[in-house]
């Protein structure tokens, strides 16, 4: 403990009052914790609320360490901050980047039940805490005589061994329940990387492209994703523009860009029309193109259209 007292002069002095060091630590951390806790309540984004909780947890760990409960303080960070909040954030991120809370209640009477349950819990807690009796404090020196973790271990695995076993059983049950609920029989044989590669090669004959699709005309002619690259024959390569942009009809008209270059080479001005030229009719007005593209993609499992080169030439003619 000697080191900690040099770094954080924290323990109570002989008269039982807080030392200056601990008082300073408290008054620095307390406002931060309150702000973090308020952040949990009022933050609009779920991730910000989670960040507020993390701030409170880490500050709380500092407090524990300052009060000579080193093990508790560190385990607070390892378990709660490092694992549980991490899992929370993991789920929040996967659910959606911007999903702010929807305030419509899906369960009828949820609010009433919640209030009743909360009140009940408050009554139970008040009853238990009100009736609790405390033994005479032994003092930190005696409690941490055999170092903090050893003292704690003797209490947890000695006095409270039964409670610990029950909590252990509960956790194992929960883990097993999660395993059972998420278990699924495999209905189809597993396809490994080798088989998928073979299937793609076999589909080569159906016009599937094995190589990566051509990159868009970025850097070659222009600095935007929506400009198709030009093929060796001078025709725009439809497949070079990302599929999403094509499906949305946001593809730029490549011939217009090609014409610009020609104008510049001929000594004229680049800008003929001010706004960047958009394709007048996406994929020559062929609206079910989405379905066609999806079909082409799913058929091979490749992230690109199957018969794209043919389509582009048709669209251009």
């Amino acid at each position: 403990m000697t080191t900690l007292t040099t770094l954080l002069p924290a323990a109570l002095d002989a008269s039982g009052t807080t030392t200056t060091g601990e008082a300073i630590l408290f008054w620095v951390l307390a406002p931060i914790m309150v702000v973090g806790a308020l952040g949990l309540l009022f933050a609009r984004k779920a991730v910000h609320a989670a960040l507020g909780v993390i701030v409170v947890m880490i500050s709380l760990a500092f407090m524990y360490v300052a009060q000579d409960a080193v093990f508790l303080g560190i385990v607070q960070v390892v378990v709660y901050t490092g694992a549980i909040m991490m899992l929370f954030l993991f789920v929040l991120m996967l659910v959606g980047v911007d999903s702010s809370d929807s305030l419509t209640e899906t369960l009828a009477g949820q609010r009433v039940v919640g209030i009743v349950a909360g009140l009940g819990l408050a009554v139970v807690l008040a009853g238990v805490i009100g009736r609790a009796t405390y033994g005479a404090p032994v003092g930190l020196q005696d409690a941490n005589a055999e170092t903090n973790p050893v003292g704690l271990a003797k209490i947890v695995f000695g006095q409270h061994a039964f409670a610990l076993e029950i909590v252990g059983a509960l956790l194992v049950t929960a883990a097993l329940g999660a395993l059972v609920l998420t278990h699924r029989e495999r209905l189809t044989p597993k396809r490994d990387q080798r088989q998928r590669a073979d299937a793609r090669v076999a589909a080569l004959a159906d016009g599937v492209v094995l190589t990566p699709l051509p990159a868009p005309g970025v850097y070659a002619r222009h600095n935007a994703m929506d400009v198709p690259a030009l093929g060796p024959d001078g025709r725009p390569l439809e497949a070079s523009v990302p599929r999403v942009i094509r499906v949305r009809g946001q593809e730029a008209d490549a011939r217009e860009y090609a014409a610009r270059i020609d104008r510049v080479l001929a000594g004229g001005w680049a800008a003929d029309s001010e706004p960047p030229p958009q394709a007048s009719e996406p994929l020559s007005g062929d609206e079910p193109a989405t379905a066609a593209l999806d079909a082409a993609t799913s058929q091979t499992g490749q992230n690109g259209p199957a018969a794209a080169p043919d389509q582009s030439t048709e669209a251009d003619r």
Partner: peptide
């Protein structure tokens, strides 16, 4: 510095770093 749970402290630091 050193204290009775120093190695756990190292684990705590790495898990905060992951944030």
């Amino acid at each position: 510095t050193d204290f009775p749970v120093a190695v756990l402290y190292i684990l705590a630091c790495t898990s905060v770093g992951a944030y």
